[in-house]
Design a protein around this nucleic acid. Sequence first.
DNA 1: ATCTTTGCATAGATTTAATCTATTGATATG
DNA 2: CATATCAATAGATTAAATCTATGCAAAGAT
Lengths: 308, 308
Amino acid sequence: MTLQQLQYIIAVDRFRSFAKAADHCGIAQPTLSKMIAKLEEELDVRIFDRTSRSVEPTSTGSRIVRQAVKTVQEAARISEIVADTRQGLSGAVRIAVGPSIAPYLLPGFIRVFGAECPEVDLTVEEMRLEGMMEALERGAADIAVATAGHASGEILEIPLYEEPFWVYLSEGCRRRLPEFTPEQLSHESMWVMKEAQCLRESAFSFCKARETGRRVYEAGNIDTLVRVVDENGGFTIIPEMHLPMLGDRQRANVRPLSGDCLSMRRVSLYIRHDYVRERMLNSVAAAMMKVIPRRMLDQALLRGPIRL
Amino acid sequence: MTLQQLQYIIAVDRFRSFAKAADHCGIAQPTLSKMIAKLEEELDVRIFDRTSRSVEPTSTGSRIVRQAVKTVQEAARISEIVADTRQGLSGAVRIAVGPSIAPYLLPGFIRVFGAECPEVDLTVEEMRLEGMMEALERGAADIAVATAGHASGEILEIPLYEEPFWVYLSEGCRRRLPEFTPEQLSHESMWVMKEAQCLRESAFSFCKARETGRRVYEAGNIDTLVRVVDENGGFTIIPEMHLPMLGDRQRANVRPLSGDCLSMRRVSLYIRHDYVRERMLNSVAAAMMKVIPRRMLDQALLRGPIRL
DNA sequence: ATCTTTGCATAGATTTAATCTATTGATATG
DNA sequence: CATATCAATAGATTAAATCTATGCAAAGAT
């Protein structure tokens, strides 16, 4: 059994024609016929039924083809490993980022990564959590950035940073509660973001922890949310990296959240567990680490590069 | 890149010697040297450092070797698929069964499977849940039987049967509660099994559902448990397939559990998601299905064979 | 310091097997 | 019944995997 033979049966399965498959593989049709006959002989099993006018895999054949695809993919990863260790990183990388993280991370990341790895074809897409995980599993994305705790059998998680939450109070709130304590918030309305599942989870946990069951409204992005709070009273939870985006007047409305429960969100990188491009991953992580304030960064990541 | 070359580098990595590796592969040493040089040239990367007196993989080299092992394993599965479809199933299969299921399933299963697949080298091991899953992942077991709900990324779950629970009452209970209703059990002590995690989970759920926080003791096997109940009063939960094992006098102490919440346990087969021996799996499942009462069997399984 | 041993690399011959072109044979289609 | 289509076969050719014999460098022994 050779990798080439496996590629041949994959082609025949795909084109349902020896001639077309041979053409696709860049060999003559008799060669393909012979190679497949040889594999069938070696395995002592019929892989394709050649009835007149059509080539169909046998039931065992289609299972063999499926396994052949897997095998060839694993072999291809060897070349990926090599490409990954090359000086002057190149190739493509596709990154998915959650909506509550993208605005703070992406602008800086794209600039830094673009400068450091100009040869890499970078694709960045903002998507929601479920979409990200599904894209990773399908192989439609290489690396995802989302809140921690969503690893699974297929998906490997690498802690990236921990970001404190702050409270954004309306002016009314702020005047009423000059000496701010978290417990007092139970009596105010809380606003949360709609799209950002991760932020919402955190916010709801916070809300629950405070035993608040008050009115909760949802906005599509944090800037809007802040303006809603400005105009309607109440408060919202915002991640620390949003602070630089606030205007001077708004910044006065921000208060830290005391360091106990749920005042942080942990953000991780996610990759398929069989992703092999170690250097690519480390270049991506390094660029992100230049954008994220150092004190938030995960300790393990600061100590040294990620090893696959 | 050929599968053979991959096997060669795996051998060199293993023996840390070209000569020994060549011997192991059944080829001459210069052939091995050349083949490895060729692969290194094709990938344009050094895989092994040949310093005097020792052969060591480079850092990229050991990543390549690791990936090569994976690739060769996937290729080997093609032969497994073929072996699996052969008439007259053969080869080996290793099955792990939980302690609360084994006594009812195994005696009959071993007899039936042994009769139907005499060529198969069967290993059956009784182990606890965590051990089973770990053994499956390591590849130390091929098929596991345990209560439902323990699938994960690596592990695929196939529903096998649903088994009603019965209540075993002590004679005292039975005399005191001739007109038995589940709610009344809240006032009696419940006994549960120690080793059988799955049974215990079910029992505790039952207990919780009844809002009972009463004294709970643990035994090592169900026969002991039944005797504990006989001598100490109270009750226990036993799976239906245990009923035939009770003596005549004991059978009078058994009552059905009303059909609502948690009166069943669901039992599943588990395999690694990349287990390829479809026919083996179906032969195993078929033998189990002959042992398990038909009305308990999973509908999907009754409709047709398992497809991988 | 020199000789021997150990172990991988190189050279050239040999065998194996992959591939090509030309042709045949079987089977639908007009 | 002729023709077109498509895979299989035959025989020649080329590529590549493997072999034996030898070279060459480094570590140990004399």
